[in-house]
Nucleic acid binder design. Structure first.
Lengths: 245, 245
DNA sequence: TGCTGACATATTGTCCGACAATATGTCAAT
DNA sequence: ATTGACATATTGTCGGACAATATGTCAGCA
């Protein structure tokens, strides 16, 4: 049987998508740098040869990813997407894929010890100080579950930041949104404040001493504690994390 | 000195953002499931009490992240963001942060061996077959640099998929966009086809045998080869990856 | 001088109404 | 059963309009 020619679809892109791609490209290629102002909507409309409404749609397309933002809630400005923006979009995706706590935990086991290890190499004195402050604060709020969770999340963020690896920082962004909040249930159920503090303390010591293996090892231990907590509390280790976002 | 009351800013959100949040929430909370159609723009406009233009902006805000898409390039449909959508948005972020190849490599060292390890536990026969096919293909195209790179990327995607961990799949999405393409330069410079194949073969064997340690170990070896290749070819291990996106 | 207020200006947020292009559904004709 | 004609629904794009708000300017006043 003679197959008729397959032309494939006539990839006709709507104008707002073309415009958004053009802007995106200009930004990523470095033609426009972070912090710079974009032309006004009217100007863009004129340049693209479309109406302002279309330009606006093109802009919105990029805004949610964090590439564009408002400087003074007026003019558009090119921004570097922070961990929040990335975390938000990736965790929406994970939520829709019904990611289980176990799956997140496995990813965390891949990334968090790595963060600890790298922090040993790159942490500055200022960052070590921030970690020390965090330990103090953690001890203070040990009884307050919400504050404890916040301190806990903070600690891991500080470690990640001390790794001075932006790729890692962004890759682990969704953990902040999904993994650690789920941990809140464990804290309320088991009050493992002391155990958390011990682990953090060891990680901190290792970072100060520049002892990579120890940092990695204690981060792993810490993560295993997470897992044990969820299992002990029977909090649905193999069930999808639900989004409180 | 008596501090005057601090009211904080009057967080006035534009309507298109409110609308987008409302839709996003409905989707994430499961009120609307993936695959379902959204009401028409006119309906949404009526429900929200705004004009269609505003609704359209709200929709665009979500479209780029992959939560919304076109079913038949007409009606809006709720979609699960795939690795492409996530990869695209996260890698834009990484590019703007001037992520270096070294940083990406470190993340890959955290995730790829993990993927190999998990694949040992979860790979189905069909997935093993796909891996086997990939090995055959890799051997065939060993001389063709572009095709080889494609096969290489494919292999790692297949392994990741065999891990049956969506969180991992999404977390490593940016690697596909930035890390492996950079590897293309190495292939052209050093033609390490044979070395790649050997590593892949060992990973494949380990997965078939269910030998987690071996899979992990060979993935690590493979990654170290990457790094060595970049260093040997003097291809800018510590320089920002440039986006060809 | 330094602060305040009035005013013009630029830019975004929102609205309205309109039309073309395209996918869908229906029904008659072949 | 396939085709063609036609009405319908929905999106893509247009153009113009106005309100709200941030910025800049400048005179007035202590």
């Amino acid at each position: 049987m003679a197959q008729p020619v397959n032309f494939g679809p006539l990839a006709h892109q709507p104008a707002y998508r073309l415009g958004s791609e053009k802007i995106r490209h200009a930004i990523i290629s470095g033609e426009i740098e972070a912090g710079e102002l974009l032309p006004t909507e009217t100007d863009l409309a004129e340049q693209f040869g479309v109406t302002r409404s279309t330009v606006r749609e093109a802009i919105r397309l990029l805004e949610h990813v964090g590439i564009l933002g408002r400087a003074d809630r007026k003019r558009l400005v090119v921004t570097r997407p922070g961990t929040e923006a990335v975390g938000r979009s990736v965790s929406s995706a994970m939520l829709m894929h019904q990611v289980t706590f176990e799956e997140l935990w496995q990813v965390a086991m891949g990334l968090e010890p790595l963060a600890g290890k790298l922090a040993c190499l790159s942490a500055t004195d200022a960052e070590k100080q921030l970690l020390a402050d965090n330990l103090v604060r953690t001890r203070e709020v040990m009884a307050d579950h919400d504050a404890l969770l916040e301190a806990e999340i903070d600690f891991h963020n500080l470690v990640a930041q001390a790794s001075h690896n932006s790729a890692l920082l962004l890759a682990r962004a969704p953990l902040n949104e999904l993994f650690y909040p789920a941990w809140g249930a464990v804290i309320r159920a088991l009050s493992p404040g002391e155990r958390i503090l011990v682990a953090h303390q060891h990680v901190y010591d290792a970072i100060c001493a520049g002892d990579q293996e120890k940092a990695e090892e204690w981060m792993e231990k810490h993560m295993r504690d997470f897992r044990r907590g969820i299992e002990l509390g029977n909090l649905g280790f193999d069930k999808p994390v639900r989004g409180q976002v």
